[in-house]
Design a protein around this nucleic acid. Structure first.
Lengths: 288, 288
DNA sequence: TTATAATCATAGAAATTATCTATCGATAAA
DNA sequence: TTTATCGATAGATAATTTCTATGATTATAA
């Protein structure tokens, strides 16, 4: 029962007049008669009773009428929702992120711009984000670059620097900046080694042939900061996260001379810019 | 968006594999690819993301999937319900009727629609029809309303008015209409009192405190009309029957000012709509 | 009644659309 | 690298829809 036939049927149901219905549909009357006849054969029941006098719906016609309306409406809804999708009024976007702090502000702005798009942000290590993208469990990632995979595309966002967070009572708390060498004997609370921020610290130290002293490894910035407040040890944070710390129990001091830097960038599947939602998000973050 | 395309879409959604879906549908793979492509163009959005590895639904595809299922289901229901009507291909319907003229046209149309159904129409007084329904000797009645019985259901059809039939040679024959008062001294041929048309006449006269002059009581319209032709007296007929009179020996004149009216309606056992034959007949008469 | 107009059905031709086969290019597996 | 799998493309064929012209039946008006 093709959709076209249902439209024809509805037109005749409304007009109860084949010639007028055909005009309304923009087809010829014999075509309409023929097509309705086909529909009647397909259903094995007459839909209209025709006499010279009048055209009326049979019982089968009345049954079909209700269902036809619901079918047409369902299709209308589908079209509408899909249009909303390409108009960015609806949709889902799954983001993997090496630290939510990297994009909170941009996220808020994006949500205000497109309130109909449902955002899911998962805090993940860089490799997990990559795997998520490759297995279509994520749409975009905000991670530390470089990251190589032939199926993914990259867009740099900004350079991330590192800061030391340390208890206000510590002697370093008043320094205006800290050299990496000064971290050597400081007890440190760090990310586990699979995290790229940790690898960034480790490689900076390896270059300078410095041996760090990690006393604890925690996988969230918040818990690390808590340890710093309790003076368990110093913590090395991305600068962008350090900015958001308001506690007066910890001091935030830039690492400098040389400052270890890491590029933060966007990752997404190479073909995924065809999705208007993903490309809108990428554009938004770049201009932010 | 043709129904066929939705079926194709659903097949691909299930298999997530064009070649297998095409086999399942009994069409070739290029055809399926092409038709899905058409659907995607029609909707203005890709429905599947294809890579050599795998075929997966896009967001637009997911939206369409839900609607497509509902559409297919709705069409399945329509077919099913219409098939259940096939019981209408044979059967019997016993109709009681206060005058066959009330439904001749509708009866002809119904018979053309369902030629396998054997129709038995019995001309009866309203109470006889009611008793017939209650004793399951009739399936439906077409009678004058109101009629009260808890076990029966009612559907109004139209209002019946009355006309006077009188010999063309009578002085009233040229009037355009007749008041009830003018009937007072006219010799009249009427139904016996158990008939509702008669009761209708009597009660209209009672209200106006008029005394009629019935010279004869006959139980069929035809015999009454014959008496009118022979100028035995005037006859009061339902207007719908008056229309069918073609004799030039009698004049048909509307009763007016006030015109006694009576509602004509359908009566049937409250549960009898479960029979598809009876419900088809009821629906047919109402839409006629 | 008879003529006229309106309405739906039918037939055959034309146009459109779906489908097929054969083949290509890209991707994944061996 | 080679092979196998999978979807896309092109051109030919088949099926289906649509059209015009016309017929049959019924309602309306003279």
């Amino acid at each position: 029962m093709e959709h076209r036939l249902l439209e024809y049927f509805l037109a005749v149901s409304e007009e109860l007049h084949f010639t007028r219905a055909a005009e309304k549909l923009g087809i010829s009357q014999p075509t309409l008669s023929h097509q309705i006849r086909l529909l009647e054969h397909e259903l094995g029941a007459p839909l209209f009773y025709r006499s010279g006098k009048k055209t009326i719906l049979t019982q089968a016609g009345q049954i079909l009428l209700g269902h036809a309306h619901r079918v047409i409406n369902e299709i209308k809804l589908a079209r509408q929702e899909i249009n909303e999708l390409s108009g960015l009024q609806r949709g889902k976007l799954r983001i993997g992120c090496s630290g939510n702090h990297l994009l909170t502000d941009a996220l808020v702005a994006f949500h205000r711009l497109y309130p109909g798009i449902e955002l899911t942000v998962t805090e993940l290590a860089t490799e997990e984000t990559r795997d998520g993208l490759l297995h279509n469990q994520l749409d975009v990632g905000v991670v530390f670059l470089p990251l190589f995979d032939e199926q993914l595309a990259y867009r740099p966002l900004y350079d991330e620097e590192l800061v030391l967070a340390i208890s206000s009572s510590h002697e370093y708390a008043t320094c205006s900046n800290i050299k990496i060498q000064q971290l050597a004997n400081l007890p440190l609370v760090l990310f586990p080694q699979k995290f790229l921020v940790r690898q960034m610290i480790d490689s900076a130290c390896a270059e300078l042939e410095i041996q760090l002293n990690p006393v604890m490894e925690l996988s969230t910035l918040e818990s690390q900061l808590h340890m710093a407040e309790q003076n368990v040890g110093g913590t090395i944070l991305p600068k962008s996260y350090g900015k958001t710390v308001v506690s007066d129990k910890v001091a935030i001091i830039p690492l400098a001379d040389p400052a270890p830097r890491k590029k933060v960038g966007l990752v997404y599947g190479k073909e995924s810019l065809e999705s208007s939602i993903i490309s809108a998000f990428v554009d938004h973050l770049i201009s932010f």
